[in-house]
């Protein structure tokens, strides 16, 4: 973690091997934001964005990396994976669209709510995806 002059940056590795462990990075981020006094409502929105992203990385991309920063005005969450990429990013942002397996649905996810939830809870969302190379998502949450 780097911290100074009100800025903070933290990196997290999202392990793609274990669905049951998914969420630990989101949990650590939430704790960090709370420790530096970010208001609870902004923390909750950031936590939903990060957690949905983390779940997506585990379900679809065998894990990835997350970088979270706070500059006093915005929480920025940068997610990057080396998964298969998203064939139709615009379609993936629509509620109800999902390519998740039945196994994932049985675990309570995969209903096509992940990306729409991330968009709803962030003030800005940018996504770049290249088939066969991976996906990058940057979300900004205004505090």
């Amino acid at each position: 973690m780097s911290q100074g002059s009100g800025f903070i940056t933290e990196r997290y590795i999202v392990n793609g091997d274990d669905f049951h462990a998914a969420g630990s990075a989101s949990s650590a981020m939430k704790k960090l934001l709370r420790s530096i006094g970010v208001p609870p409502e902004a923390i909750r929105r950031a936590a939903i964005c990060m957690y949905e992203g983390e779940i997506n990385m585990v379900i679809h991309a065998c894990g990835g990396e997350a970088e979270v920063s706070f500059d006093g005005e915005y929480i920025t969450i940068h997610l990057a994976d080396k998964g298969p990429g998203i064939e139709n990013p615009q379609l993936a942002l629509k509620e109800g669209y999902s390519t998740a397996t039945d196994e994932i649905r049985e675990l309570g996810f995969g209903a096509g709510m992940g990306l729409p939830n991330m968009k709803r809870n962030s003030d800005e969302l940018e996504m770049e995806s290249v088939l066969g190379e991976g996906t990058t998502i940057v979300m900004k949450i205004k505090v």
Partner: peptide, 27 residues
């Protein structure tokens, strides 16, 4: 459906569920 909980719940509350896995706790 944990995705629905993440989408629709807005205030601190109680979750009733028949789903049993660690993601219930995380959600």
């Amino acid at each position: 459906l944990m995705s629905d909980v993440l989408a629709y719940v807005k205030e601190q509350s109680v979750l009733l569920t028949g789903l049993v896995n660690p993601q219930v706790m995380r959600t």
